[in-house]
Design a protein around this nucleic acid. Structure first.
Ligand code: ZN
Ligand code: ZN
Ligand code: ZN
Ligand code: ZN
Lengths: 135, 135
DNA sequence: ATTAAAATGTTATATTATTACATACTGTTA
DNA sequence: TAACAGTATGTAATAATATAACATTTTAAT
């Protein structure tokens, strides 16, 4: 059995794969220059190489950017293959970040319409608080 | 009638007032260095002076940071005197940003609990789409 | 083989934000 | 008033985050 169309569409280039692997195995969100430092031994030498891979990985939904932290985590939510509807919980003490997958939440937000009738194609939600350990 | 306690607590210093005035009268979110450029004639010369005022204004809820844009807008939602529960709509073409004040939305999000039972003290939500004009 | 799209390599630069340290102002209390 | 604590300011230097511009190479389809 060959590569399915959807897998092929999202197959990663060399730099993308190196950077995705690093982020995917990290227990915490990684910043661009932390990534750069960690992949220099693999031949990725310049910020732009990192940012280009990050842009692509975000675009195809393999990773997400935590906007309030300028950091990136791998997607562990099988339902969000594209970065269109993201929600995270962030501990303000230990900085642990978890992707939230709640059918109720995503349904509520996907259906939300504001007063102007503006219809949204995308959202990002970041919750802040204290995690179990830090409470 | 004197200054009420709550007003006094939130009374602004000179730099804070200058920077708040600028943001408050701007039709669009302003970036830190745009602010710096625009207040140099008022004697504010260094980035740090801007960032310190911004930090304070965010803390007391007079302005909000649009995380995905690294920009700041004045709060026009009387119910959010502190920056604990914010929601915005952002047009991806013209970059118009509007603060959303929906009782339903804030009630839903304030009450949201994730699987781990983590209770949140704060959230920020950014919706993206096309505004009326750009559609 | 031709070709177009995507990805890479490289240098330089732009943008966003903080550290460190010295000084001054504001309001309260002894 | 004098002392004090908390907040705000001024200034220089630097750190951290992100993009512009341009040349080249790889990939994958025709
Ligand atoms: Zn995801
Ligand atoms: Zn924690
Ligand atoms: Zn507000
Ligand atoms: Zn628009």
């Amino acid at each position: 059995m060959g590569i399915s169309k959807i897998d092929k569409m999202h197959s990663l280039s060399k730099n993308q794969q190196i950077i995705f692997n690093l982020i995917d195995k990290s227990p915490e969100p990684l910043k661009a220059y932390t990534i750069l430092f960690n992949v220099q031994k693999k031949g990725i030498k310049a910020p732009l190489q990192v940012y280009r891979a990050l842009d692509k990985l975000v675009e195809i939904g393999k990773i997400h950017k935590i906007e309030s932290r300028n950091a990136f985590i791998a997607c562990h939510n099988s339902s969000c293959q594209v970065a269109k509807a993201t929600a995270f919980s962030i501990c303000e003490i230990c900085e642990k970040v978890t992707e939230i997958s709640s059918a109720g939440l995503s349904k509520y937000l996907a259906g939300f319409k504001d007063k102007d009738g503006m219809k949204y194609s995308k959202y990002n939600l970041e919750f802040f608080g204290l995690c179990k350990k830090c409470r």
